[in-house]
Design a protein around this nucleic acid. Structure first.
Lengths: 136, 136
DNA sequence: ATTGACCTTATAGTGACTATATAGTTTTAA
DNA sequence: TTAAAACTATATAGTCACTATAAGGTCAAT
């Protein structure tokens, strides 16, 4: 039995974030003291830890809600869970490829200028302005 | 001389986005017809193309504003432009590394389950719930 | 009695758009 | 000529996952 501040400290997050997750339907409504303070138990702590670990995996709050629904129905087959993860992995891989392309692009742009010029002659600005940005 | 729709078509973006850039101070205020319609010239088109190319490089609107200020002062040295790009490259590289770590993490989690289980026994959900997420 | 630490709710801000609502204007077709 | 379609205008809200701020209530210790 603890109040929001203690739960926040244990979970390593802000009290605001806990209230936010509650409002988002990710955390079950806690009991309240007579003064209105929220009271949490260990179940809340576990639920919060699950949410946090999902967030570390960069799952969206919607995906987390979906995972929680699966957990509440433990005799379903878990294909949907695996499918979600597969799709998430694809998404992350796409992001990586996009960023690697961007990086190449930026590095080759950077190579167009040393630091000893005036703005007017800056190869970087010229490179952006001229717009042959997809010509490798 | 063209109206916003034509400029949008040429630039390949939405009219809303043009008005948004104007409000953000990225596009100079265009003249207006008697009916209030905005009128653009080629300079606006070039400016918009510059903005778009910067966005393709994933530069923020703030960074673009900064680049525009440099362009307006063409006899400054261009060290700041290059520094901005260097920092942006570092930022992109950090993102790539973070995503690659995440991908490894997700792939190893995915390997904890085949598709033929019940939710209760799902290795993926267990992997998230158990929380030994940083033990490689 | 008051300070400080904690708790409450409600609201606004972040970034870069995107969508919606409402209304006025111009162009095209019947 | 009139009515519909296509364009323009402004203002406001929504996206995502928080984060910050405001304004106030509660509690323990000094």
């Amino acid at each position: 039995m603890m109040r929001i501040g203690q739960l926040a400290q244990i979970a390593g997050i802000d009290t605001q974030t806990i209230r936010f997750y509650e409002k988002q339907g990710l955390l079950p409504l806690p009991d309240r003291q007579q003064n209105g303070y929220r009271i949490y138990n260990e179940k809340h702590g576990e639920r919060l830890a699950f949410i946090r670990r999902c967030r570390i995996l960069d799952l969206s709050l919607t995906e987390i809600r979906e995972l929680q629904r699966y957990q509440d129905d433990p005799h379903q087959p878990c294909t949907a869970v695996n499918a979600m993860l597969d799709e998430h992995i694809s998404h992350v891989q796409s992001q990586i490829i996009a960023l690697q392309t961007l990086e190449k692009h930026l590095v080759s742009l950077r190579a167009c200028c040393n630091d000893d010029r005036e703005i007017e002659a800056c190869g970087v600005l010229a490179g952006i302005s001229e717009g042959n940005m997809y010509s490798q």
